[in-house]
Design a protein around this nucleic acid. Structure first.
Lengths: 140, 140
DNA sequence: CAGTATCCCCCGGGATACTG
DNA sequence: CAGTATCCCGGGGGATACTG
C-alpha cells in the first residue's frame, strides 16, 4: 500500500523531470512543440470528436455533428481538417451522389484516444467532487 | 503480447461504454458536467499552471508567471481563482509587507496532475510524430 | 509582491444560406 | 450529403498603469 503510493510518486517526479528538467527558465523557448500539439489535440471540440470516433469506429459528418452536439458546421470541418493533418484521423470519401465521407481514427489517433480516455474517465468520475468544491467555495 | 493488446482494447471499450453508453442521442443533455469540468481543467493555461505546481510543491504568483511564460496577469489570477474554486489548488497568503502568497496543489489536484501528466508525457513523446504528419500533409 | 482596473482589439466561432 | 462562403458579434485575453 505504502510502497505503491511511493512508487507512484517517484514515477510522477520522473515524468515531471523529463518534461521540465531541461527547460532554461531564463530563455523559455518561444516555440514549444508540446504546447503546439496540445493546442490542437486537447481543444474542447477536438477532444469530443476524438472520443466519439473512439466509440464508433466510423462516423460521417452529420452523425458526428449530432453526437458532438452544439458544434457548428464551420468548427467541425475545421477541427476535422486539423486532426487529419496531425495524423489522428483519416478521411475517406466515396464518389457517390450524394457524396459519402467517412471519418475514423488512425492507429496513432487510437493510441492518443487511449490516453485521452483516461483523463476523460477521471473527469467523469470526479465531476461531482468538483461541483461540490465549487459549491462550497461559492459559499465562502 | 497479443493478449495484452487485446486486454487494452477491451478496457478501452469498457471506458467508452461507461462514458457514452448511457447518453440519449435524441435528447443530448444541455448541461454536461464532464464538459464543464473539462473546460476548466484542461484549458491550456490551467494545464500549464497545474503541471508546474506538480513540479514545484509551492509557487508564488510571480514565479508561476515566469514559468508559465506568456501568460498575462489577468489570465493567471483568473485561472488561479477558478482552479482554487474547483479544488485543484490552495492559496495561502501571509500577511507580511509586502504580502506573500503561496500556491500549491491539493491532494485532489495532485491526483488530477497525475492523469494530466500521462497525457502531457504522451504529447512530449509524440510531438515529433505530429510535426512530421503535419509536414507531410502540407505537401499533399 | 500580488494582484486589480481599465481599455481596447481581435478573432473564434455561431447562424444562415448556398453549392458540387 | 458534406461541406464552403459570408456576415457578424461577444468576450477572451493582451498591455499597461495603478494600489493595498
Amino acid at each position: 500500500m505504502e510502497t505503491i503510493a511511493e512508487n507512484q510518486k517517484v514515477r510522477t517526479v520522473k515524468k515531471l523531470e523529463k518534461m521540465f528538467g531541461h527547460i532554461d527558465f531564463k530563455n523559455p523557448p518561444e516555440l514549444c512543440p508540446v504546447r503546439d500539439v496540445m493546442s490542437v489535440a486537447s481543444d474542447q471540440w477536438s477532444t469530443l470528436i476524438l472520443l466519439w470516433l473512439g466509440y464508433f469506429p466510423v462516423l460521417r459528418f452529420n452523425k458526428l455533428k449530432k453526437y458532438v452536439y452544439g458544434i457548428s458546421n464551420k468548427v467541425l470541418s475545421q477541427r476535422l481538417k486539423v486532426l487529419e493533418a496531425d495524423g489522428y484521423i483519416q478521411r475517406k470519401a466515396y464518389p457517390e451522389v450524394p457524396i459519402r465521407v467517412e471519418y475514423s481514427l488512425t492507429a496513432f489517433g487510437r493510441s492518443y484516444v487511449e490516453k485521452l480516455l483516461d483523463l476523460a474517465e477521471w473527469m467523469h468520475d470526479n465531476s461531482p467532487k468538483v461541483m461540490a468544491n465549487r459549491e462550497k467555495y461559492g459559499l465562502l
